[in-house]
Design a protein around this nucleic acid. Structure first.
Lengths: 128, 128
DNA sequence: CAGCATCCAAGAAGATACTG
DNA sequence: CAGTATCTTCTTGGATGCTG
């Protein structure tokens, strides 16, 4: 049997959590329009708020703050407020956050490898 | 530098696609409330429509069909209509679909490993 | 600089009823 | 059996303006 399946099946059957399986749980953490990007740029190094906003092009304050907060309560991101004037707030990945980043590498590679196919597929979704 | 970062950065910089990075592209394929589950059950073996619906507990016809169609145009799932009466339609993963399933294994493991933490975090999201 | 508050638009998802 | 169609609801995300 496929490896993924055996893992999932056992998870499903013994489930005492609100999650259908481990993948379901993981997706709840990384789903969000800007979260992957935030993870990426923070995986490089810690960043101040404005710095991060410039990296994640096109994001609004509302969304950036919202997603950062969620990542923070999820324990992925650590926020440090230096209580200075003018304000200086730095965001960085926690050790836990880095384990997530590692787990995402294969999926990232998959996406990079098949970018063309995926792009064409998304176009088909609209026209069809 | 963290491995994920170097990968992503190169992707971002050379991007000629609508995607921010490979992970972004990949998430567009697997995001969807029922898609992970569909992938899981189909990774086990091909299934008829009704059979699949019984596996994915709680899904409506509308959503199941919609997500299956997207997975189909994405080339992840193959639909075979045997044109019988009563109807018999079988869904299964394509070879491409299996490569995606493989890429999801580490994320699935991560989610399974940290289910408790994630669950508590989601509760905090609501209360906070 | 680093946010918060408010309003509004768009898309995702549920409920219900019907068909070849 | 394997869907389709329509309506409504819920959730996400964007735009704008304001604050310590």
């Amino acid at each position: 049997m496929h490896l993924l399946v055996s893992m999932v099946m056992s998870t499903v059957r013994s489930s005492t959590t609100p999650f259908i399986c481990g993948l379901d749980a993981a997706l709840r953490v990384v789903s969000g329009k800007w979260k992957p990007l935030i993870l990426f740029f923070l995986a490089k190094d810690p960043k101040r708020y404005g710095e991060l906003k410039r990296c994640v092009r096109g994001v609004s304050d509302k969304m950036l703050i919202q997603q950062l907060k969620e990542l923070e309560v999820d324990g992925i991101v650590v926020r440090t407020d230096y209580k200075e004037i003018p304000p200086r707030v730095v965001y960085e990945l926690s050790p836990f956050g880095f384990t997530l980043a590692d787990a995402l590498i294969p999926l990232c590679e998959w996406g990079t490898e098949h970018t063309d196919i995926i792009e064409k597929a998304l176009v088909r979704r609209v026209t069809a």
